[in-house]
Design a protein around this nucleic acid. Structure first.
Lengths: 147, 147
DNA sequence: TATTGTTATACTCTATAACTATA
DNA sequence: TATAGTTATAGAGTATAACAATA
């Protein structure tokens, strides 16, 4: 039944609008990513914060909000959650007492390694319609738009 | 300030995950699409329903839900809204009295033409980092994932 | 004055279950 | 029994404004 609607509407004008294709491609990705993360107690959003915390780049909360296209108030909630789980800590910045730097704990680093492997697997499943070189090409094109 | 975070995290592992790039690329697209639609009294979602209603393919509500990756109950609300605005009508299907076929009115067709032009313009703005051939390539890659 | 992090709040979006009428 | 559409509701996601501490 789902397949029938795809066949019927595949040639509709909408189906060639990049906006629509991005939304649909992302829906595919989210399904696999959520499956991968739920067993680890993470979501796409908390994974992305944990990933930057584990990067060694010492992001501030404001930088996380910027880079992840989230509101600062949402970052508060996500960091709260990760901090309670023991995966990250808020470190006061030495040069500016308003600022927190978010860094991963050892346990957070371990969790991140697990989660990254799961994310990679999920990505492979989402992208299995593409060859390796097509995946690289997609990555490059999306990077140009995203930054 | 937004730029500084991009520079700092651009080489983080996260920044090359397709999942993340899709989310960010879509955020860019949504900003432009919303700007384009708000003047027309539409949103991304109602536009996509109107577009299929205007396609001549006579989608049922169930097919719309399938194709747009939305829940059937959400389609009800969107069709209600479009119907109240006079852009679409629910036509009883001749062969199955449970089923409604959604078709655009004349006014809906006119609105759709306007909206499609606006969407195209917004798409151009979102994709202006890509050449025309790159845009085509992106469309093709996303289509493979999406369907 | 401007900025970081925080709290509170409301609004949109999404998912679920239950209902009706038809098949 | 199963399906199309509908209703109600709750949860997740997102946006906004206001506040304290600091720059």
């Amino acid at each position: 039944m789902a397949k029938r609607s795809v066949d019927r509407f595949r040639d509709a004008a909408l189906a060639s609008e990049i906006e629509f294709l991005l939304a649909r491609a992302r829906a595919v990705g989210i399904i696999h990513a959520n499956e991968a993360f739920v067993a680890l107690g993470l979501k796409a959003r908390s994974y992305s914060v944990l990933s930057l915390a584990a990067s060694g780049l010492n992001p501030t909360q404001r930088e996380l909000a910027d880079f992840l296209s989230l509101d600062a108030s949402q970052i508060v909630a996500i960091v709260d959650e990760l901090e309670q789980a023991g995966f990250v800590v808020r470190q006061p910045a030495p040069n500016d007492r308003r600022t927190n730097v978010i860094v991963a704990t050892d346990s957070g680093l371990a969790k991140h390694r697990e989660a990254q492997a799961a994310a990679e697997k999920a990505e492979g499943e989402s992208m299995n319609a593409l060859s390796a070189s097509e995946q690289d090409a997609l990555r490059e094109l999306l990077t140009k738009i995203a930054f």
